[in-house]
Write a protein that binds this DNA or RNA. Structure first.
Ligand SMILES: [Mn+2]
Ligand SMILES: [Mn+2]
Ligand SMILES: [Mn+2]
Ligand SMILES: [Mn+2]
Lengths: 222, 222
DNA sequence: ACTAAAAATTTGTTTAGCCTAATAAAATTT
DNA sequence: AAATTTTATTAGGCTAAACAAATTTTTAGT
């Protein structure tokens, strides 16, 4: 049974959306919004995917990936993230330039290719945005990072990933001079607007709005 | 105007077929055979491509690429061959394993990507099968090689490319121990079946059938 | 419990890309 | 020059993937 590029994109969307919330059912409208297709189109595809046993679908009740569907979705995510590492590490693209190209590359179909690419890149565990790369068996490091704005006390953290992948946000961070792996020391938390004053790498102090802070994922520095 | 993956494949087919012969018109049946689609399907597509000014098409008279069509086709060929170099040089695929994957990768759409891939690979001039890689402006080294079986005198040659790209032929050459760049000394030409006895790299003598010799491209050794 | 709003599905079209069968045009043979 | 064969086109139909409009089901508000 072959899975089309479009079907792969639907499976990935369902996977991504189910991870945002509580792992429960994903709704037609969520998928519709995410993929920028009309709800009627989504319903059609849900029937097709259910037919292929890639999702469990009860009309009006939303969908969940089957094991098979989940495996497929994770493989697409794995490819997407490996290619992003390739583009940044080997071709010197910036982290805000790679997503659209990876959206295409993630559909290239060759197990041998993924395997060799993985080795060539040194079996990376995270992509350029800090997102974990599933291994060949579909296992992925659960990330224990939290958004910066949920840290209620001052302290020392490491910037490990982003919640928001838009080009403008990534460029904003680059403008500030913030990169994955940088240390972040919360110096002030302003009560009235929940903005933060943060020192990056012990040198340069910056103000982060709550919006920005909510999209920056940090771990506690050991 | 966007050009679909399928349209790209038709343009590439027309380009390839026109190069085989005398650069003249390509026929519906040739395309049909090459792409393994029915002639009626090809006629449909020819109308679409003509509509888009990618080919000049006169019913019953065959087709020729327009300048625009040719540019597009050459770009696809460039991408195909660059990706093949990547797969062999960087991911250590064998030369008989890369074609199918390159058939997919050649449709990835990003000028910046091709440009950077080209630089990353060291701006290669030839792909793993000895085929010339068009440069960013679509110029390509005309190859002055001839098939081994057209060399009528004994002498010293260099193996620079293949005429036949099938997995089985490439594996056959690998089995013989023949690689691009090897020197070939014609020791004997057998009149009755036009087979050749050839010494590879001054060490190992092999018999080549005329069929094999016709698919091996050589240049005169300077 | 009833009604209005929101969410999802069904119905009917469209386009790209493929097919087979029927027909027309061109080339070849007699 | 006709007849036959080969090549190509037209006509009609199919499926995947999209849409808009109409309808149904579920949820939320009173
Ligand atoms: Mn991405
Ligand atoms: Mn990413
Ligand atoms: Mn190839
Ligand atoms: Mn090649």
């Amino acid at each position: 049974m072959t899975i089309s590029l479009t079907e792969e994109n639907y499976l990935k969307a369902i996977y991504t959306l189910s991870r945002l919330g509580d792992e429960s059912e994903v709704t037609t409208n969520e998928i519709s919004k995410h993929l920028k297709n009309k709800a009627a189109t989504v319903t059609d595809m849900l029937k097709r995917l259910a037919e292929k046993k890639l999702i469990n679908y009860i009309p009006y009740q939303g969908v969940k990936l089957t094991e098979k569907g989940k495996r497929t979705a994770i493989k697409v995510v794995r490819k997407h993230r490996l290619w992003e590492v390739f583009l940044v590490d080997k071709l010197n693209f910036k982290w805000d330039e790679v997503h659209e190209i990876a959206e295409q590359l993630e559909h290239i179909n060759s197990d041998e290719l993924i395997q060799r690419l993985d080795v060539f890149l040194g079996k990376p565990k995270f992509d350029p945005h800090g997102d974990p790369i599933p291994d060949a068996n579909g296992q992925l490091n659960t990330i224990k990072a939290l958004p910066l704005n949920q840290r209620k006390s001052k302290g020392n953290f490491i910037f490990v990933g982003v919640n928001e992948h838009s080009k403008s946000f990534l460029q904003h961070l680059t403008g500030i001079g913030l990169k994955i792996g940088d240390s972040l020391l919360i110096e002030e938390i302003n009560e009235f607007d929940n903005s933060f004053k943060v020192k990056i790498n012990k040198t340069n102090s910056q103000f982060f709005s709550n919006k920005v802070a909510s999209n920056i994922l940090v771990e506690i520095k050991k």
